[in-house]
Write a protein that binds this DNA or RNA. Structure first.
Lengths: 232, 232
DNA sequence: CTTGACATACCGACCGGTCTGTTTTATCCA
DNA sequence: TGGATAAAACAGACCGGTCGGTATGTCAAG
């Protein structure tokens, strides 16, 4: 055997496993973990029970695999976008701003069914999962905040904010806005919600780190519509 | 019959119904709607199946009643706090700031088990509920945003912001921060998370509407700890 | 001829909901 | 005033369907 012990030998099995994970993630985001049935997954993937239990010990292991896959993809997406932003700008302030715009552009490209956050979905069903999954989510959320914190740390190191503030606090704020943004976007069926929050956050950063640039209009601004019907 | 047709004759039945609703809300926040079992409710309230189905047609009706109760309580809480803030200050800017501080103080008083938002919990299980529940949540979220919008509208009418911004956008932002704050607070088991977001939001408003007051330290500021371990 | 990758029939537990019975409470009339 | 009476407020056994999980089998590839 060329690749012994079933290492990273992609082939058919891995593809099927990936299909199951992708379907499960979408279902968890739409119906919640407890609301998702194995039958749902089988119907979505066209597989049968035998196939599912060949790849996963059970629903609990699937739950762990889904959140791990999600966390890894999120982490990589951030790193990639961060690298792109750093290539497009040298100044730490501009790097943060460009990163946020890249993030907003990325969200623009996301079609519906509008995605949510697996972390948040799990959080509201926390009792379903053991403490190990809970602490794993906590760790990955912490890592996510840390990614933002690093970029903001570089910013604060070069520019004194107009008001005392920590990189940690600002990092927590944008992550909170993203999590809340997913909830609101889903509730209103409005895919632009999250982008608007990111734009407001950029405005906050601008006032903190470039208060003189008030005249220089922030290009690509996403203001909320002047009047929005609550039921729209 | 003095009170015909079982009108608003509180007494015993209503109290039991209220106990069921309170238990169900806590369970939905902890385990999600689908993860919550009728047995859970019966165990929590010490009742039996007969009692439950005497008060509710089924789990679906309970779900609707829970979210309606939650929405009404939230609405009333806002109105009450808003009235208190308006009594404590005359200036629209100060009224918003005082309101936010009252909100933070209120959150301080909340003991664990740390609450979440029923709207958000339902949002991540949206497929479980019919479109009528979904649109109801949308309407109530819209009303909530509208409450904030009215206060911020008065603020913008009296003070020109340092940067063009709409009351609607700012209202959406604070609501988004609250929703995301519940998620993060639950994930990290950190009851102060939401208060810190509110404080950051106040800082944003200060920069928007009182940029000269930089020297005047905002009393009762809640900054994030300088270094937070991601796993803490 | 072993092993991975599926398919299928089936099981047992659980869960939402029903049915019937019992207790308590409120109301009305002699 | 008090007992009849009806309705509300419960209790608890039971049922049918669903869901997670298992056991067994097939089939192709190496």
């Amino acid at each position: 055997m060329v690749c012994q012990k079933g290492e990273v030998m992609g082939s058919k099995g891995e593809a099927t496993r990936e299909r199951i994970l992708a379907a499960a993630e979408a279902l968890i985001l739409a119906k919640g973990y407890a609301g998702m049935t194995l039958e749902d997954i089988l119907g979505e993937t066209g597989l049968t029970k035998g196939a599912f239990f060949h790849h996963f010990k059970g629903k609990a292991e699937l739950a762990r695999a889904v959140v791990e896959r999600y966390a890894e993809a999120d982490f990589r997406l951030f790193e990639e976008m961060s690298a792109r932003a750093d290539r497009l700008a040298d100044d730490p302030y501009e790097r943060v701003m460009v990163f946020l715009r890249l993030f907003e552009d990325f969200l623009d490209g996301l079609g519906k069914p509008f995605p949510g956050c697996v972390f948040a979905s799990y959080t509201y069903e926390s009792r379903q999962f053991g403490p190990e999954v809970h602490s794993y989510i906590r760790e990955r959320l912490g890592a996510w905040i840390g990614q933002y914190e690093a970029k903001l740390e570089a910013l604060i190191a070069t520019r004194a904010p107009t008001r005392p503030v920590t990189a940690r606090a600002l990092a927590e704020m944008i992550v909170t806005l993203v999590e809340g943004g997913f909830v609101m976007a889903n509730a209103f069926g409005d895919a632009t919600w999250l982008q608007r929050q990111s734009a407001q956050y950029r405005a906050y950063l601008e006032l903190l780190f470039r208060p003189d640039g008030a005249g220089t209009a922030v290009s690509g601004d996403r203001d909320a519509p002047q009047s929005r019907s609550p039921s729209g």
